[in-house]
Simulated scan of single mutants.
Amino acid sequence: MNVEISIVQLSHGEGLPLPTYATPQSAGMDLLAAIENPIELVPGDRLLVPTGLKIALPSGYEAQIRPKSGLALKHGITLVNTPGTIDADYRGEIGVIMINLGKETFIIERGAKIAQMVIAPCIQASWSTTTSLDSTSRGEGGFGSTGVFAQE
């Protein structure tokens, strides 16, 4: 399925490629850092990195902002709010809230791949109040109630 999305590239993002899929079956498009000078992200710190992009999603869609697995594994870099949600009615710049959970300072440079964006349909729910819920085999079992191993 393909959906057309309007996109604006802001002045600080000029010259950077628009988000693209790395392979024909990729779910996410890479987002790039639209910064002028390199930024140091020291262990334990977090910061908002601009992408230089604004989008207009069609009604009924969201954009999910997710970490890059390579950055997480190799450097301990992830996103604080993950997945981050870009709502269909948001028109501001897309920013990526990055955090360094690694042991070394990480340098973010202009054009670096900092996150991926997945476009997904979004369903809105309505509530139906009731006095009881149907029963299931799990019932009210909470965290860990289904066990730790496959055979439990």
Rank of each mutant, 00 (worst) to 15 (best):
Q116F: 06
V8M: 07
G142P: 05
G141F: 07
P17Y: 06
R138Y: 14
A112Y: 14
Q116M: 13
T130N: 13
I86G: 10
M98S: 02
N100T: 05
G15F: 02
E93L: 09
S11Y: 05
L31Q: 00
A27S: 13
L31W: 02
H75N: 11
F143Q: 12
I94E: 00
S11L: 13
I107W: 10
T105S: 14
P58L: 13
L47N: 04
A33S: 06
I86M: 08
Y90L: 05
N37Q: 15
G95N: 12
I5S: 02
E140S: 15
E62N: 06
G60Y: 04
V3I: 13
Q9C: 11
G144M: 12
N81Y: 09
I65M: 10
G141E: 11
T136V: 11
E36K: 15
T105V: 12
V49M: 07
Y61E: 01
S128Q: 15
S132G: 08
L18F: 12
P83L: 04
S137T: 09
G84L: 11
T129V: 13
T20A: 10
I55T: 00
I94Y: 01
L101Y: 08
V118G: 07
I35K: 10
G52S: 09
A72K: 00
L31G: 02
S126T: 14
A115M: 03
E40N: 13
I65G: 04
I107L: 14
R110Q: 09
I65L: 15
V3K: 04
K103G: 07
S69Q: 03
